[in-house]
């Protein structure tokens, strides 16, 4: 196991509503080293909120609270908003589900990548352009010059997501948070994008938090898995040992999946139990 890059202790995310406070994330602790960690859960499990709160990106009226979020030995909770802006996109980057919402439609792709780089490092315009082109090549875009000049609406979903990855990795971050980065893509494209992400993360020795609803995909792509239910971590295990998972929720999710290799007459419906919500969160720090 590699050294710890990020360690989160007792994280809560709360949303006040008319009918009372809703806790989206309820006291979870986990850590990420230079490895691929998957956070899996169904809608409403709090997995996306977890990803956003690492970068302190919970929008009002939501509130986040934690004992500590330690990144490279520093507690991010003690950082000012200005210091956080230096962390975001520079040392910790985030890739979202749909590139269409993350890219500015009125600027060319190249300009946006260059801007991302120049925001955090002192490089000349020419160097930035060179760096952007190299990065586009690294995400296996065949004609980087053309893509550099194009606008977001001219790109297909898979191409857009490659551009996003290029933009997020050009500042050489140490940690990448990918929130459902391939869910909007076709399966075959999805695999290519994952392969690119995988290769770059490995080459640069980065940490990766991969947030997804797809248990199958996460277990085949990540090193370690964190399974969330109703704002808590119900189970954590090595990806290769997922089939040995013991929590009834994890088992239920596994059994609910139809599988090509083994036909089943009936899929097992998940019987949710209220006790799962009451159980203490599992500590997923290593």
């Amino acid at each position: 196991m590699s050294d710890t890059l990020l360690s989160v202790e007792d994280l809560w995310v709360r949303f006040p509503t008319r009918t009372g406070t809703v806790d989206a994330v309820r006291g979870i602790s986990f850590s990420v080293g230079r490895e691929r960690v998957g956070i899996v859960g169904e809608s409403g499990s709090g997995k996306s909120m977890t990803g956003r709160s690492i970068l302190r990106l919970i929008r009002a009226p939501g509130q986040m609270e934690a004992k500590s979020i330690t990144f490279n030995g520093d507690n991010l909770l003690e950082y000012s908003e200005r210091q956080m802006r230096k962390i975001r996109g520079h040392q910790i980057s985030m890739v979202m589900q749909d590139p269409k919402f993350s890219l500015n439609p009125v600027h060319s792709v190249g300009k946006q990548i260059c801007e991302a780089l120049r925001l955090h490092t002192k490089v000349s315009r020419k160097q930035a352009r060179q760096g952007a082109l190299e990065m586009l090549e690294a995400v296996q875009i065949r004609n980087p010059e053309r893509v550099f000049r194009s606008y977001p609406h001219e790109l297909s979903g898979g191409m857009g997501q490659r551009v996003m990855i290029a933009m997020m990795l050009i500042t050489d971050p140490q940690l990448l948070i990918a929130d459902e980065p391939t869910s909007a893509l076709d399966v075959t494209v999805q695999m290519k994008v994952l392969a690119i992400m995988d290769k770059l993360v490995q080459e640069r020795g980065m940490g990766l938090i991969f947030i997804s609803h797809d248990l199958n995909l996460v277990s085949s792509f990540c090193d370690r898995i964190i399974i969330m239910y109703a704002g808590r971590i119900v189970e954590t295990c090595r990806a290769s040992e997922l089939h040995k998972a013991t929590h009834p929720y994890t088992r239920g999710l596994l059994n609910a999946l139809p599988r090509i290799e083994e036909p089943k007459g009936r899929l097992e419906a998940l019987q949710r139990q209220d006790s799962w919500k009451q159980e203490a969160s599992v500590d997923a720090r290593v």
Partner: peptide, 26 residues
């Protein structure tokens, strides 16, 4: 089920839906 589709495209689809495989897609 027996993974005996005839076209390459179907093979690829089938492979992709089995999960990520670094050697195959990498």
């Amino acid at each position: 089920r027996n993974s005996t589709p005839k076209t390459a495209y179907t093979q690829e689809l089938l492979k992709a839906s089995m999960g990520y495989d670094a050697e195959f897609f990498g």
